[in-house]
């Protein structure tokens, strides 16, 4: 069941992954992904009927901790890593692009 990976499919996956590829980058990555996904398709040859998928090698089970708040007081240090801040808060661009309002 070889999947044909075309530019449109790559664009779709890029949208899901919040990445973008311009024409040139798309021309480079599309055949690469096609080749690698072609390799993936080899797995179809393996008989896995009745095999339980293995998502992790751990045998540990989830552990609960006491539900207790901890104050870390690291606001200033954390904010230093933010790309843009104002008044002790992280600053982001407008979430809704008003210039696009007319189109909607």
């Amino acid at each position: 069941m070889a999947e044909k990976i075309d530019r449109q499919e790559v664009q779709h996956v890029a949208n899901l992954a919040k990445l973008s590829f311009d024409d040139q980058a798309l021309s480079k990555i599309t055949p690469q992904l096609e080749e690698i996904i072609g390799l993936f398709t080899d797995l179809q040859k393996v008989d896995t009927d009745g095999v339980e998928p293995m998502y992790s090698p751990t045998t540990e089970v989830n552990v609960m901790r006491e539900d207790k708040g901890i104050r870390s007081n690291q606001r200033e240090a954390l904010l230093k890593n933010a790309p843009d801040t104002q008044d002790g808060l992280i600053k982001v661009p407008a979430i809704i692009d008003e210039s696009e309002d007319g189109d909607k």
Binding site: L78, I90, P93, I95
Partner: peptide, 15 residues
Amino acid sequence: IRYGFRAKDVKNLDD
């Protein structure tokens, strides 16, 4: 948003 590289001249959140 919170840390790391942010592209310049971005217009909206998706950007």
